[in-house]
């Protein structure tokens, strides 16, 4: 009798598992289907090449080029700034510090925690700083908050790449008389493909973030010309457009959602494709 029940539960559990897998895959398909189906129905060439025209939120003339460009500006600048800060931190953790360093442990823990903090809290914090220094919502503020947001993502994913680096190779460079600074150049060259992947994945995360820039970048119908001007971002304009009552305006939201999804998918799939290729050729 005992023997039988264990086979019964085996079959039951197997069914549950297959059900779960099917559910997960179905979620992905339904999301992609909805976004692509609705998006392709409503997207026009004018939407992605024109700025919003008068009455954009009422009748729906013009497009959301301002948001696309705004998002790209913010994310590009934040990526460059983020790299300038996170690469030295990762180098310090992995080359300058010993493997079992306490400082390294706490630093990694800090970045794990920073990674978990919701972006809306980053937004609120950045807002406080903006008020304190008398800054208005602007492109610059959006860049700063996105940089804050992207650094923990970059540090964590790059640290994972750097940790894989064989310690012995580092010892060889030292034995040739290299200083840590010179050893770093060897290491960076070796892990460059991994760093590229990590960067791309972080960029994909940062471009889709809404809550933080909501507080800081403001909104504008134009492409910003200086750092002090407000700027629209793609995720935020999707949100704004979708909450408008007119169906014609909502179509713009679907089109913008399609554009954002395509951008994010291209970035993250390139990243994963690269990482697949890199891991195949690793020493």
């Amino acid at each position: 009798m005992k023997l039988k029940s264990k086979y019964v539960s085996e079959v039951l559990v197997r069914a549950l598992m297959i059900l779960s897998i099917v559910a997960v895959v179905a979620f992905v398909i339904s999301i992609l289907y909805i976004i692509f189906h609705k998006g392709i129905q409503s997207i026009t060439w004018a939407m992605i090449t024109q700025l919003p025209q008068g009455g954009f939120f009422i009748s729906g003339e013009g497009g959301f080029l301002n948001a696309i460009v705004g998002s790209l500006y913010i994310v590009l600048a934040a990526t460059v700034l983020g790299l300038l800060i996170s690469v030295p931190i990762v180098v310090y953790l992995n080359i300058y510090l010993k493997k079992d360093s306490r400082l390294g442990y706490f630093c990694r823990l800090t970045f794990d925690v920073l990674y978990g903090i919701p972006s809306i809290v980053y937004g609120a914090f950045a807002f406080i700083i903006m008020i304190a220094v008398g800054m208005k919502p602007s492109l610059l503020a959006g860049i700063v908050v996105t940089t804050m947001l992207i650094i923990p993502i970059m540090v964590r994913s790059m640290d994972e790449v750097a940790r894989e680096f064989p310690r012995r190779l580092l010892d060889v460079t030292y034995s040739m008389g290299a200083t840590r600074w010179e050893a770093m150049r060897v290491v960076l060259r070796q892990i460059m493909p991994g760093l590229t992947t990590a960067t791309l994945l972080s960029v994909g995360r940062a471009i889709g973030d809404t809550a933080a820039v909501m507080f800081t970048a403001g909104f504008s119908d134009f492409i910003p010309k200086t750092l002090g001007q407000q700027t629209a971002t793609l995720p935020l304009s999707i949100f704004n457009l979708l909450t408008m009552p007119s169906a014609k305006v909502q179509e713009k939201a679907y089109a913008a959602a399609l554009v954002l999804t395509i951008i994010v998918l291209i970035i993250s799939l390139t990243g994963r494709y690269l990482s697949g290729r890199v891991s195949k050729n690793k020493i």
Binding site: I34, G208, A211, I238, F239, L260, L265
Partner: peptide, 25 residues
């Protein structure tokens, strides 16, 4: 090979896209 990429896509989609999916479906 089918499920891991599906999970990767889920992980990379921005929050606002989930919002659009939620409101539409």
């Amino acid at each position: 090979k089918l499920v891991y990429p599906a999970l990767d896509i889920l992980a990379s989609l921005p929050s606002v896209i989930y919002g659009v999916w939620g409101t539409l479906l």
